[in-house]
Amino acid sequence: MLIHKPADVPPSEITPRSLFERRRNFLARSGTGLVAGAALWHGLPGAARASTRLQTVPSALSTTEPLSERDAVTGYNNFYEFGTDKADPARNAHKMEVRPWTVRVEGLVGKPRRFDIDELLRLAPLEERIYRLRCVEGWSMVVPWVGFPLAALLKEVEPLGSAKYVEFVTHYDPKIMIRDVLDWPYTEGLRLDEALHPLTLLAVGVYGEALPKQNGAPLRLVVPWKYGFKSAKSIVTIRLTEKEPATAWNKFAPQEYGFYSNVNPEVRHPRWSQATERRIGELRKRPTQMFNGYAEQVASLYQGMDLKKFY
């Protein structure tokens, strides 16, 4: 008589190796996500800092220039929804709830979806990217962002061949934000190839921690070769389109703020010289670099374009 001795573990219970490895990966990342989630939930500077550090990997795309002071990065902001003085956002942005938070990715994509912020935090390994930030007003900083390439998110939704542009719509709540000045909600846009460029970042943190609300929590865009206003804060919708999307500052003053708004010392602005900039913390101005010093990486995107016309 043949006695079937059952195996200790039935084959159906054995996790395939690939899945097993994916799960380890998932656990590792969700660890990051949980920590990040906690940080976003509490919003919190100060004592809790040590426990809210985001797990990041360094990036070869980072600059080695000295960082701007954290107080400057988190206390000197343009986030007009919370007031037009540079110190207003840090004073008023605490009113914004950043949990729960979902981001809709829609338009000309094969798989339109809503992403929960926690999902986005696990979408790709978080990198620390130290970028120069050049404001159209003539000042600049060096900011250690934490985030992942926008391309990683766009890949998930499979852009259609007809998609040419990406529109970003940001959070607007008239109960806690100002009602006038600009045509809210604040919108921004990129050409699809700009959006897919490896430098283009979706940031979830700064200085190794979750983004403070005044910096555009929980998720913002960072496009380091363009003037700062292109890097929309507190994004709720990402829409792929065929036509160039309208952008907030361009609608307000088209002769001053173009769709492209690449940092360009040769294109003058009626209010500010763009030839020089003041690095926050420094006394004397320094010359502004073409594409904010990222010409090597991005100049090819604009080959054959008259950058004085497409400013």
């Binding site: 002071e69 206390g75 000197y76 540079k86 110190a87 000042w139 926050i280």
Partner: peptide, 13 residues
């Protein structure tokens, strides 16, 4: 304020 470095991130402004 200038002396005490208390004029914000961009004191010249």
């Amino acid at each position: 304020g200038w002396q005490a470095n208390a004029l914000g991130a961009n004191p010249i402004e």
